[in-house]
Amino acid sequence: MSAAPEFQLSDGVNLQALPKVSLHDHLDGGLRPATIIELAPAAGVELPADDPDELAEWFVAQSTSGSLVEYLKTFDLTTAVMQTADNLERIAREFVQDLAADGVIYGEIRWAPEQHLAGGLTLDEAVEAVQSGIEQGIDDVESAGGYIRIGQLITAMRHADRALEIAELAVRHRDSGAVGFDIAGAEAGFPPSRHRLAFDYLAAAHFPVTVHAGEADGLDSISGALVDGRALRLGHGVRLAEDIETVRSDAENSYVALGELSQWVKDREIPLELSPTSNLQTGAVQEWGDDLVDHPFDLLYQLGFRVTVNVDNRTMSGTSLTRELALLSDAFGYDLDDIENFQVNAARAAFLPLEDREELVEAILDGFEDAAEGVRSAR
């Protein structure tokens, strides 16, 4: 298994060792560069670099454009090597291994099966291949003495017209790995209302939905995700901060007023799947600045929104969940209690049965208590 680099809080706690929950993590955005290089020749893919480190650097450079549209172009390369059952199975297996190496004990892997049919697979065969890889990865983790649980978020591309078909696919696999549905891709100009039939179907089937919204488009997109999509979570949702107005400030504090939409999201405790590094890369937070300290993550957290921390695309951002938590801690001075809050928020937002979510929360609390006890013992 590949190992994530270690990051520590100021009190010496190793962030990598803490139990974590990953809710917003794209399969085609989390390939190992070495695997891409190995699979590219058979797939007929020409790469910009044939060294894993150089290819990793290329992905990050290409993704740091300030444009979601340009950011999404890097996926042409990754999806090109994900068109056979064997490749999907391997990539999913390695994906699970990498999550476990980063301390993740529950993860939801989102991906769009409709983008993986060029090699002749059917939608169902693609889902089955990914599920096989996930199960192999879980077995690998358990054989090494670890624990992880994984669910698939079956995703439809919002600029296409297959959302109902993909929704039916997701429900068809609800007892064999699929835990939720999403729409992704270019956000502006492709509102959730385009796929109302799919969302109606999912609601009737009592199947959970998260929707990419509030990343490359604003408040109308977020509202559409909630009204038309009946989203239980917001994929990113960072631009919800546009509905928060600073009414006055003094030397020590700022006082804000929430608009109707942001107040609704807060009061309903609708989770925000925030991805700090990715949000900077795609320009989702450019209204507030271009450094992590400008990200409205802390504003949303301090105001009591249900914030969660995510990677979005590990390859494109050169990141891990551990690294994202470390960056936030450095930017905003978060301590172990804050990091625990983010993981509990994510555990409670997981698309799992209530009893399983409660067990996941307990596992998070126990792991963080062990870490806190280790700090106390070391003093």
Rank of each mutant, 00 (worst) to 15 (best):
R110G: 01
A56V: 05
T78W: 02
D98W: 00
Q62S: 15
T74V: 13
A56P: 01
F95L: 04
P52S: 11
Y71P: 11
A118M: 10
A61M: 08
Y106E: 03
D53R: 12
V81C: 04
E108D: 11
A49H: 06
Q62F: 12
A61G: 05
L99Y: 11
I105C: 05
G107F: 03
R93S: 04
A101R: 04
L77H: 00
L47G: 04
A92T: 01
M82L: 15
Y71L: 13
L68A: 03
L47Q: 07
P48Y: 08
T78N: 07
E57F: 12
K73G: 02
V104N: 00
S67K: 10
D86W: 04
A61T: 13
Q83K: 15
E114L: 08
E114A: 15
F59L: 13
I91P: 00
A56N: 07
E46L: 03
L77K: 02
D51I: 09
V81Y: 01
Q83S: 15
E89W: 00
L55E: 05
M82D: 01
E89I: 00
L55M: 06
Q62L: 13
L88R: 06
P48C: 11
V60W: 14
E54G: 10
A100N: 09
H116Q: 12
L47H: 09
V96Q: 03
P113H: 07
Y71G: 07
G103K: 07
V45W: 05
S63D: 07
V45Q: 12
G66M: 10
E108F: 08
F95Y: 12
F59E: 03
E94L: 06
A85H: 03
A56H: 11
H116S: 03
T74M: 10
H116M: 13
Q62R: 15
D51G: 05
A49D: 05
L99A: 10
Y106L: 14
G119C: 04
M82I: 07
A100C: 11
I109F: 03
A112H: 06
D76C: 04
V96D: 00
D50M: 06
D76A: 11
V96Y: 01
H116F: 02
R110E: 02
E46F: 02
V60L: 14
H116A: 02
Q83R: 15
V96F: 01
G103W: 04
E94P: 00
A80D: 09
L47S: 08
T84I: 06
W58V: 09
N87G: 02
M82P: 00
Q115L: 14
D51K: 12
Y106R: 14
T74E: 03
F59M: 14
L47N: 05
E108I: 05
E46K: 11
A100D: 03
E89V: 01
P48T: 05
M82Q: 15
L72C: 13
Q83T: 14
D51L: 08
Y106M: 06
